[in-house]
Simulated assay, not measured.
Amino acid sequence: MARILVLYYSSYGHIETMAMAVADGARQAGATADVKRVPELVPDAVASKSGYKLDQQAPVAMVSELADYDAIIIGTPTRFGTMSSQMKNFLDQTGGLWFEDKLVGKVGSVFTSTGSQHGGQETTIQSTQTVLFHLGMMIVGLPYSFKGQIRMDEITGCSPYGASTLADDGNGGDRQPSENELEGARFQGRHVAEVAMALALGRQVRVAE
């Protein structure tokens, strides 16, 4: 059974909601899935004044834990077309794992959110994938077998690079992940889990031979 870590950062809860859907998808495929978040860098007083969602139940992850998983699925909101500083700060601490090749051959995947349709969803995912490549991970996206990403009857996130959601309703108000976006997240979780389990089985066969 593959072990999946859904590692996320979420200021207002949109990525938190997507992370839970990703984990559900991984479990549907028969994997175990833990959901953990990276530490907040914003002072509590500032975060509270800014309306951050501070009651998130997921435990805070430790960098050393990453090596214990077969796959890591990262969720981060977009900050000017790239990952959040909180996620970047966490990943910048993986130098020791990189030096010891602890993450080489593990599966990596990314999902995101933006405040608008053209807010940098694809660049955020791709720039995060760059870090995973440097760590030696094998990147998995959201294939077009998830047909929800090509629908034209509604505004929706998701791309072949990974699941995504739009966090603004277009009038400055809050928009929660749609069912189509959540299904994209679940699909990505299942897909990553299936790939991780297939790789694990292949390694077992080679060892047995």
Results as ranks from 00 to 15, higher is better:
residue 131 V to N: 08
residue 161 Y to Q: 10
residue 114 T to A: 12
residue 162 G to C: 09
residue 125 I to V: 13
residue 127 S to D: 08
residue 164 S to Y: 03
residue 158 C to T: 11
residue 95 G to N: 10
residue 112 T to C: 05
residue 83 M to I: 09
residue 116 S to Y: 10
residue 132 L to E: 05
residue 111 F to Y: 09
residue 109 S to Y: 06
residue 136 G to A: 08
residue 125 I to S: 01
residue 88 K to S: 09
residue 165 T to W: 02
residue 100 E to K: 14
residue 92 D to K: 00
residue 82 T to V: 13
residue 84 S to T: 12
residue 150 I to Y: 00
residue 144 Y to A: 09
residue 146 F to P: 01
residue 79 R to N: 15
residue 131 V to F: 13
residue 107 V to Y: 00
residue 134 H to T: 06
residue 102 K to C: 08
residue 104 V to D: 11
residue 142 L to R: 04
residue 118 H to C: 11
residue 139 I to H: 06
residue 129 Q to L: 11
residue 86 Q to D: 04
residue 82 T to N: 15
residue 144 Y to Q: 13
residue 152 M to E: 15
residue 142 L to V: 12
residue 164 S to D: 00
residue 99 F to P: 00
residue 93 Q to K: 15
residue 151 R to N: 11
residue 86 Q to H: 15
residue 132 L to G: 04
residue 131 V to R: 07
residue 154 E to V: 10
residue 108 G to K: 06
residue 84 S to N: 13
residue 137 M to T: 10
residue 158 C to K: 06
residue 156 T to K: 15
residue 128 T to G: 11
residue 143 P to D: 13
residue 169 D to H: 04
residue 150 I to R: 05
residue 121 Q to S: 14
residue 159 S to M: 02
residue 156 T to M: 07
residue 136 G to V: 10
residue 144 Y to V: 15
residue 118 H to Y: 14
residue 164 S to H: 01
residue 137 M to S: 06
residue 148 G to L: 08
residue 111 F to P: 01
residue 167 A to H: 06
residue 145 S to I: 03
residue 98 W to Q: 05
residue 108 G to V: 03
residue 133 F to E: 01
residue 82 T to R: 12
residue 97 L to C: 06
residue 153 D to Y: 01
residue 114 T to W: 02
residue 137 M to W: 02
residue 144 Y to G: 14
residue 118 H to D: 14
residue 145 S to M: 09
residue 125 I to E: 02
residue 161 Y to I: 11
residue 114 T to S: 14
residue 77 P to Y: 12
residue 126 Q to W: 00
residue 84 S to V: 02
residue 90 F to I: 10
residue 156 T to S: 15
residue 133 F to W: 05
residue 85 S to P: 00
residue 153 D to P: 01
residue 112 T to F: 02
residue 94 T to F: 01
residue 124 T to C: 14
residue 164 S to T: 04
residue 105 G to Q: 09
residue 132 L to Y: 05
residue 77 P to N: 06
residue 109 S to V: 07
residue 109 S to Q: 05
residue 119 G to V: 04
residue 88 K to V: 12
residue 122 E to D: 12
residue 99 F to S: 12
residue 95 G to M: 08
residue 141 G to N: 05
residue 108 G to T: 02
residue 123 T to N: 14
residue 143 P to M: 05
residue 92 D to P: 03
residue 132 L to A: 08
residue 165 T to S: 12
residue 119 G to R: 09
residue 99 F to T: 10
residue 125 I to G: 04
residue 78 T to I: 03
residue 99 F to C: 03
residue 137 M to H: 06
residue 160 P to F: 03
residue 81 G to L: 02
residue 142 L to C: 14
residue 163 A to E: 04
residue 131 V to P: 00
residue 136 G to L: 08
residue 157 G to D: 04
residue 102 K to H: 08
residue 165 T to K: 05
residue 137 M to P: 04
residue 138 M to D: 14
residue 100 E to N: 13
